[in-house]
Design a protein around this nucleic acid. Structure first.
Length: 554
RNA sequence: UGACCCAUGGUGUAAUGGUAACACUACGGUUUUUGGUACCGUCAUUCUAGGUUCGAGUCCUAGUGGGUCAACCA
């Protein structure tokens, strides 16, 4: 019986397990290092999950560290939202909430150390000159004329930079590595720049700020991060990351790069997402069409589904585009287990049960979730006049159409079996009313009719139904990779039907729904109550539709 | 005319030199008072060419294809 399910490790776990076997006193400490200049999106979800889950798996810890070294673009507003999103995703950094800006003094001291070792110099060449001297990937760079300043002069100048004696952009501090290095990032990278700007945390304490390459790795070391997991594009930075560990003689964090996750029909460019918000293509960062955590949350995606998704996607080093079906499959799977079934009609068609007593209302029993008995039952009013879905009736129904049509028999879910006897059309030929007879002994739960009905329809009783707004969402873009075509601006590829608003009718039990609460509208999809709802007007966001093996066959 | 990373079904990830596995999708089928769920089945000569080996998806070499790198962004 004892199955040995050998669990396969991703390449990061292999590295860790190898370290665990070959080295002593290994601790696992990771970090998630967002820059607070935008909202977290689906791409960050992968980074968050990998960092937190990997540490958890090996009994380690994960720090949250805001990489806030650029005072121009960073805001406290983003810090708060990022923290909220990570918590919602289900991860806890406990008391380890850090900021790169906490280390500004230490970073400054590191820079001084480098200068004193003759490994850094102040360059007052113009940005253009610096770029020019860097060469190109195929052409070696040349040394700056300021490369060999004395240590004393470098100290004096750097201190001057710090004290605000020089204008923004007039000079930078550069590491002295190798202008002919095949890796462009090793050609004396800039490590400090002058920016007389207000910082969201340190205020006006500093007017020089470290650049990424002189902040991220050092912060990792300061926090004793053992595995610094980042995306592939930082591969080239690793050389400098390691160079600094060696020269500064600091804690040797190890950077490991993995491929970022791309999801079809989604974009993860902060700049472009910001544009969608600013030009009102969407209603905000939390618009349910946005690939942001806030957007997906509002749309109704459960955090657990997002975690499962990342887990199923896996970790490797090759470029990838994940089909959105996998995400939706994870969402449906989670929602199927956790969500109450209710009935709501999105495109109403009046159905009259001609042999049902006028004015009579029966309370029908309904199971809330067949997957989970503990979710209990409720009652739904049934009467002579109901709404059914327009596409559940067809005048000329094909043989495999298990729904209503002249002479066809179906079961009304949690109700009775009915047979269609007649229907009414308006002057345009549109069906406006369907007339059926019902079989009194076919009531759900006590069916003695012996009648078999293949099709099952959802419905609401017109008199008791609640009119609500339904917001149906589709892919934000018309193509799966909106950024692939460099000729086309991504804004031209916005799906005009990404939001379709409808008036729908739902069963009265929904009246007591709470904002954020999720439901399965039987046969239609999963919906959650939007926070925009008021007592007078409920608004439901479509999270994802049901899977269907019918529609495309027609 | 460089350096680095990558290459397994439609998609993503496994296989850690011993006859290609799992998930999603698609397509069939069973069950079903949701055309949902659940369950079953079908869908790959591992980019190419050499080499090492008894044996290569896995190691080596070359080629091809894709990605990354020249912000005082991260």
């Amino acid at each position: 019986m004892s199955e040995e399910v050998k669990e396969s490790l991703n390449f990061i776990e292999q590295i860790i397990e190898n370290d665990l076997e070959t080295k002593d006193n290994i601790t696992i400490h990771t970090r998630f290092p967002p820059e607070p200049n935008g909202f977290l999106h689906i791409g960050h979800v992968k980074a968050i999950c990998i960092n937190f889950e990997t540490a958890k798996k090996y009994g380690g810890k994960t720090n949250l560290r805001f990489d806030d070294t650029n005072p121009i673009t960073e805001k406290t507003l983003y810090v708060d939202n990022i923290k909220n999103d990570i918590k919602w995703l289900g991860y806890d950094w406990e008391d380890r909430e850090y900021y790169a800006s906490d280390y500004f003094q230490q970073l400054y001291d590191f820079a001084v150390d480098l200068i004193k070792k003759g490994l850094a110099y102040v360059d007052d060449s113009t940005p253009e000159q610096i770029a020019e001297m860097k060469g190109t990937p195929t052409k070696p760079g040349v040394d700056s004329p300021h490369r060999n300043r004395s240590i004393e002069e470098n100290m004096r100048l750097f201190e001057g930079m710090k004290n605000g004696e020089f204008a923004d952009g007039s000079m930078v501090l550069r590491a002295k590595v190798d202008m002919k290095h095949p890796n462009m990032l090793m050609r004396d990278p800039n490590i400090y720049r002058i920016k007389k700007a207000h910082h969201h945390r340190t205020g006006d304490d500093w007017c020089i700020y470290p650049l990424y390459d002189f902040a991220h790795g050092q912060s990792d070391s300061i926090e004793n991060i053992t595995y610094s997991l980042c995306s592939l594009e930082f591969r080239h930075h690793r050389d400098f990351y390691n160079w600094l560990i060696e020269k500064l003689e600091i804690f040797p964090s190890r950077q490991i790069e993995f491929a970022r996750m791309n999801v079809a029909y989604m974009i993860t460019s902060k700049r472009r997402l910001l544009k969608l918000v600013e030009n009102n293509t969407v209603t905000g960062w939390d618009d349910p069409r946005m690939p942001t955590i806030a957007g997906m949350r509002r749309r109704g995606y459960p955090a657990a589904a997002l975690r499962t998704f990342v887990n199923k996607v896996g970790v490797a080093k090759r470029e990838n585009v994940i089909e959105i079906d996998l995400l939706e499959s994870c969402v449906r799977d989670e929602l199927n287990k956790t969500t109450a079934r209710v009935m709501g009609v999105l495109d109403p068609l009046k159905l009259v049960i001609t042999n049902y007593p006028e004015g009579q209302v029966e309370q029908m029993d309904a199971t809330n979730n067949p997957e989970d008995e503990s979710m209990g039952t409720r009652t739904i009013p049934f009467s002579r006049e109901l709404y059914i879905e327009q596409d559940d009736f067809m005048e000329d129904a094909p043989k495999k159409f298990y729904r209503l049509g002249p002479g066809k028999t179906v079961r009304l879910k949690n109700g009775y079996i009915i047979t269609c006897e007649d229907f009414v059309k308006d002057e345009n030929g549109k069906v406006t009313e369907v007339h059926c007879k019902y079989y009194p002994d076919s009531r759900s739960g006590s069916d003695n009719s012996g009648i078999k009905a293949k099709g099952v329809l959802h419905w609401v009783s017109i008199a008791q139904a609640v009119e609500v707004e339904v917001r149906n969402y589709n892919h934000l873009f018309t193509v799966d990779q909106p950024l692939a075509d460099e000729e086309k601006d991504f804004l031209e590829l916005i799906n005009p039907e990404s939001l379709v608003v409808k008036t729908a009718f739902v069963e009265p039990s929904l009246q007591s729904a709470k904002a954020g609460e999720r439901f399965q509208f039987m046969r239609k999809g999963y919906y959650c109550l939007d926070a925009d709802s008021t007592d007078d007007k409920l608004i439901f966001n479509k999270t994802v539709g049901m899977k269907s093996s019918w529609k495309k066959k027609k």
